[in-house]
Design a protein around this nucleic acid. Sequence first.
RNA 1: GCCCCUAUAGCUCAGUUGGAUAGAGUACUGGCCUCCGAAGCCAGGAGCGCAGGUUCGAAUCCUGCUAGGGGCACCA
Length: 568
Amino acid sequence: MLKKEIEKIINKAIKQWIKKEQLKIKNVPVFCVEFPPPNIAGDFSCNVALVMAKEIKSSPYALARKITMLIDTTNICNKVEIAGAGFINFFISPGRLYEELEAICKQGEMYGKENIGRQELIQIEFVSANPTGPLHIGHGRGAAIGDALANILTFIGYKVEKEYYVNNRGKQIEVLGCSVMLQYDKISGQQLDRKEKKYLEEKKSEDIYKGEYIEEIARKIFNDKKYNKIEKGRERGHWFFEKAAIEIIQGWIEQVLNDLGVKFNTWFQESKLYEKKGRQTQIDKVTTLLKKKGYLYDKDGAIWFASSKLGDEKDRVVVRKNNEPTYLASDIAYHYDKFVQRKFKKVINIWGADHHGYVARLKGVITALGYNPQDLKVILYQLVSLYRGGKQIAMSTRKGEFVTLREVINEVGPDVCRFFFLMRGANSSLDFDLEIAKKQSPENPVYYIQYAHARICSIFKEAEKKNYSCRKKNIQLELLKEPEELELMKKLAFYPDIVQLCARKLEPHHIVIYLQDLAKNFHSYYNKFRILSDDIALRQARLKLVKGIKKIISNGLNLLGVSVPEKM
RNA sequence: GCCCCUAUAGCUCAGUUGGAUAGAGUACUGGCCUCCGAAGCCAGGAGCGCAGGUUCGAAUCCUGCUAGGGGCACCA
């Protein structure tokens, strides 16, 4: 990776300089190497002189001069320049760019792969929507981000596990079961005097799930032989409908995520935390543990978690008066399972922004369990608003009026869907316009990037047709000397930096921006220069260049989980 | 009332650890296919919500304000 190499070179130079001048500086200060603004000449820029100037009591410019003298750039640069207030600018030499292009073509998918993660075990938990209905579009965003991050982290050497936490117990599941049961009775024409009816009558009617999917589930249970065989002859309580409904809904969820290209390693059932392992459940285990540590106390007949001591705004109930554990109890046990039982070194949770109030509590849990809250990263993504032709589509989960993820995928296709979810940072709310997403125009950047790839494939087909040989060896890359060609090679060489940036910040969208940029450079180059030139040596060199571009586009799209078409 | 996110070009958004003259796309106008895919290319304007502060330097950090979105259960 070029950036790291330059950092190393600078570090070395500074250490030499400190030794030479016998300065009393313990550590080389924190500086950064980055891309200079577009109007500035140079490929990488370093601010070390500006950062150090104050401590040394010297002008940044003079300092930069001294450091520059000691910089050994033979491997990577052909020029180092001081600019502005004292920036040190590096110019990557063409020779080095040719080497990188060779590496890209040779290594293919492996180009830029590193072992930064050192196979550390890391878990990403995402989507985790309650199995009480189909996924909606917001869940899609979480799915796309989580899956892309998993790809990126795996690529740089982490051992990543993707997990979906299934909340298959609790009040909302009871309501689901009852809601389905009501519909079932309607369909079957049976008017059983169920004890659950009383329960439902006591509830406000809003509590019952509406929406067509409830009827669909009830119909499926009624028609499917599988369910008819189960418990035949016995009256079915709401628990039966709960189980069947969850099974059906989870099937839908798995299917739609699968169609989006998202596969989980584990579907962790919340109910597992309540199963006895030996004498006690996981819940019992953590309750005992936290009690021993003094984080739990009794008040008003309930058991409380002293989260206010751990950074939360107030204490929270863990076990209710009626002896039922709360959701938090499950989450404590669940994260105990993640960190203690399964030994994940780092855990990433991806939540919708509406859960932000929960972050402090859960970090408190991690602390209470004796782990570093830094090892739990929570990524909050802002809400997705759906538009059609500039008009917002109103959604209400409660009323069952919402556009499902399924419908969106069916309408715009999985590639566009994933791409749109990934093109913005998680902190920005996302406007998803179905009309734009469907358009196959430059307004829609997915096709722009895919088109660049398809175009390159087409060039190779054309070359084959004309019986142009694509030599593998002795290609004169020095012939690539147009500014556009050098620029393209630089972009390609930056790919590993971009991937690592995404990994460091847990933000996949930088790859999207990068690919758009790369595609733009390519299209522009293509229009200006002829790849299949009559000059054989030049043609070979240019074919190699576009081959490199093709590889990088394909690698990038793969990390995002977007398909890479050879023709479109 | 408290907490989180957001505010950058007419619109949708980038902007790396604070760095140099803040970038794309779209829309608008005009041009480019006898030649590798026109789903493309080239050329043209405008902007960091407001007010302070920190510093060599602020879209970026701090404080206050304004506007929009979300959240504040013994629901999950």
